[in-house]
Amino acid sequence: MSAPRFDAEARQGLAMISPPLVYALLLLAAPLLTILAYSFFKDGYLEVIREFTLDNYRTALSDPVFHKVMLRSVVVAMLVTLVTVVLAFPVAYFLSFAVRAERKAMWLFLITIPFWTSYLIRVFLWKVILAENGVVNSLVTLLPFVDHSPFGNMLYNVQAMVVTLAHAYAPFAILPIYVALEKIDRSLLEAGQDLGESRLMTFWRVTLPLAMPGVIAATLIVFIPTIGDYVTPELIGGGKTPMIANMVQANMLALDNRPMGSALAVTAMVIVTIVSLIFLFLNRRFLKVRQ
């Protein structure tokens, strides 16, 4: 009922937001702008030469190694996102529709626990599971007539990274989908069936479109950290299958080429932004359908 009071309210609001805002300006905005500036500078020995150039981007974009690493990052992140979201949806659906209200908290609790345990340890566990002398091989060897290490070494490839990351980010995908499903008015589903649709068609025409914002949110929540993941390529990829984060780090630190590292970081950000915007655009279209 009350429209915004501009003077007093704006002043109070600005005063209230200023501590976190100043913090974010100093420790986030300023650093991001710095690497944006660095990406247009030249690299000198042990220093950065403040001269405008597009060379870093030119080099990066024409470098076949960069292409390969970027492509691998996007493919791995997409695969992980697809796997996690597809596997998570039925669980979220089960939680929302089949679990009794008083037991929902317990199920959510069970699903969130793995997410709160050390990420590094979880990644490492997959290393010991998939290794040549690891859990899977040694377990299968216990069977009669099976040779030593029947599957060999399952590490150091894209599939192993996908499995590891999908496991690490699984709970992230369930929660947003679950929240979206919980928001659906149950009478809409009854209306769908009342209007002559089968259970399956009701799911297809009512539940799924209404759950879409949650699916999109899940997609973004999984995709963004996965594409920038550093640990899994190091541990599971064994350093042989680097992704974009490893390349940025190598340029920034090992090769001490800050402008090149910055250009790679900016490019990675641009790609993440573009993909995210595509997802958000899809989401908006779904939202429009809803209205």
Binding site: L28, P31, L32, I35, L220, P225, G228, V248, Q249, A265
Partner: peptide, 24 residues
Amino acid sequence: PAMGLIMLPLVLPEIIVAMSLLVV
């Protein structure tokens, strides 16, 4: 925009936050 900036780390790969902070 103010809230957008503050919430940005949520959608920024950590390696970018780490690298840019390190450089500065």
